[in-house]
Every structure is written in C-alpha cells, then in structure tokens.
Nucleic acid binder design. Structure first.
Lengths: 149, 149
DNA sequence: CTTTGTGCAAATGATTTGCAGTGTC
DNA sequence: GACACTGCAAATCATTTGCACAAAG
C-alpha cells in the first residue's frame, strides 16, 4: 500500500509544509503509474497534462522533498538520470532490481537473504549500516530469445 | 594482481588499438593509486603532473576504453560522478562497497554469499545474470565516534 | 499577512563531440 | 603514409539556483 492523498495532507500538516496543487498532482502521477520507475522528465510529461503551467524545477524540488519524506525512493539504474518509485508504507523499502542490459527493462525482487549478509558485514567492518542497494545486470527472457533467434 | 604495462601493450596490439603515451600515463595513474576510486577529474589531476598538455577529453575517452576492455571497472557511488577502479586480473571483479554517508569514505568487502542468491534470483526471474552491484550505506567507525562525542 | 512555494531563465557541472592537427604502427 | 588519437573549444543534458510573483495557512 502506497501513501494516500489524505496521508500526504497529514504528513505535510505535521511538518508545516504547504500542500500545493502541484505537489498533489505529482503524487497523483505516481499513484497512477505504480509499476513504473519515473524520471523527473517522465513525471513532468505526465503532470503537464493536468497542469500545463507547471515548471520542471518544481518537479525536481518536489521529488527531492518526497524523497526526504520517504514518500518516494530515489533510484539509480545507471542510465544517467535519477528515477523515483513510490514507497510502500508497509514494507520498509527493501526490494531490488534486475536490469536488462539489452532493452533496459527493470524487474523487481524482494529481499531477505541479504539481511544476514548485512549484519555480518556490519560487524566485520564496524560500519553502522542504514541502507543497501542491490542491482543485478543481465538479459531478460525476451531479449535472450531475440538473441538466439 | 592488476594488469601490467606489458599486458596492456599486448592487449592493445591484439585489438589494433594504439598505445599512446597518454594511455600509458593513465594506466600508470591507476597503478600508483591502487587503493582509490578515481574520478575522471582525479585522474586528470594526477596525470597532468607527468603530461601537462593532456586534455580532459582524452582522459574521458581513455577511461571509456579501459572500461570496455575490462582494465578498469566503472563505479557509481551516487556522488554525481563516475569513478573507476583498476580490475584485478585473477578475481573476476566481484567485491562490493560500503559507503559512509557522513564522510564519503568507501570501504570494500569481498562477496561469496551473494552467488547463492544470484542463482536463485536468476532461476526465478528467468534473467541471464551477468553482473551485480551491491552497495551498503551507513556510517563508518570514525564518524560514529564523532557523532557521539 | 507571512512565509513557503512556484515559474522562468540563467547557471552549473559532468560528460560528449566536432574538427583540425599529431603520433603510432 | 594511413588512420586512429589527441587537444581544444563548443555543445549537451540532467539538475540546481536566483529572483520576482503567487498562493497556502
């Protein structure tokens, strides 16, 4: 379950942020595209259909804010732009990505085995670990077929 | 063991690339700083001491080439610039990074447990996995102390 | 009404590219 | 000598910032 519009209102009230129509529209863009990993430009394109006067800078500033408030999570797939996905409120943002080197498709998978590894590493390195990111690169089923054929 | 200058010469001869003094100097920069994760700008600064006339564009082009030839490996620590580390010839580039969120220091650790996870994921997702990247974010021992103190 | 947020345009910063001259094979 | 490689400067592209105006609480 992602954050709802009502929860957004609450969260913003708590911290004295103003709930502008632009911010609502941007959240809505994520709610309408739950499966995609949107870049700032993607969000801009979607949101302009509703609010043509919105500025790209506002999109960037809002994404930055949403990221800080854990409403979205910033991702980096190495394609030269930051991407964002909406956070699930229940599961504390831990799933990872399989990136197809051929078509760029991104698949997700949950994690759990990694927890063990994390605490072992933490102990050995004396780091206080707060987050991790795991990415696998390879070729998806379709691209494998396309290559064989 | 990293690549030697002689091996570089061989590798370049095989593929008809020209072994210019700039390329040698850039490799030397990595050999002289085996422990660091150098950005293009870092390399440029180091290399200019030897060859003041070298251009930043050449550094970028060479790093791109070295990366393709697996002489170095491109890394992304999310600090807005690509970094490169020299590849070990023996172990097929698989170790990972602990990134300190406070001072930016990067520590390394080997992996092995991840292999199991990788094959499980590969089977379930039907991806042909060729590489992976794992990063842990946290606070290093020094920064932890500094925060407490 | 106060203060935060917005749109616009200009600035930034890493990386790339066009081109004419240079050095390796 | 041919052709890949270089240096330089200009171009790109994502992202950030300064500023005058607008809107939320």
């Amino acid at each position: 379950m992602s954050i709802t519009m009502a929860e957004l209102r609450q969260k913003f009230r708590d911290r004295q942020y103003k709930l502008t129509s632009q911010r609502q529209t941007i959240l809505q863009a994520f709610l309408d595209h739950p499966d995609r990993h949107l870049s700032a430009e993607d969000v801009y394109t979607i949101v302009r259909k509703q609010s043509p006067e919105i500025g790209l800078a506002t999109v960037y500033r809002t994404l930055e804010l949403f990221n800080e408030l854990d409403i979205v999570q910033r991702l980096d797939f190495g394609d030269g732009r930051q991407r964002y996905e909406i956070n699930e409120t229940s599961t504390p943002h831990h799933h990872h990505h399989l990136i197809c080197l051929s078509c760029g498709k991104v698949k997700e998978f949950g994690d759990d085995l990694l927890e063990t590894l994390e605490s072992a590493i933490a102990k050995r390195s004396k780091f206080a670990i707060v987050d991790h990111q795991l990415k696998f690169y390879g070729y998806c089923q379709e691209c494998q077929k396309r290559r064989e054929g």
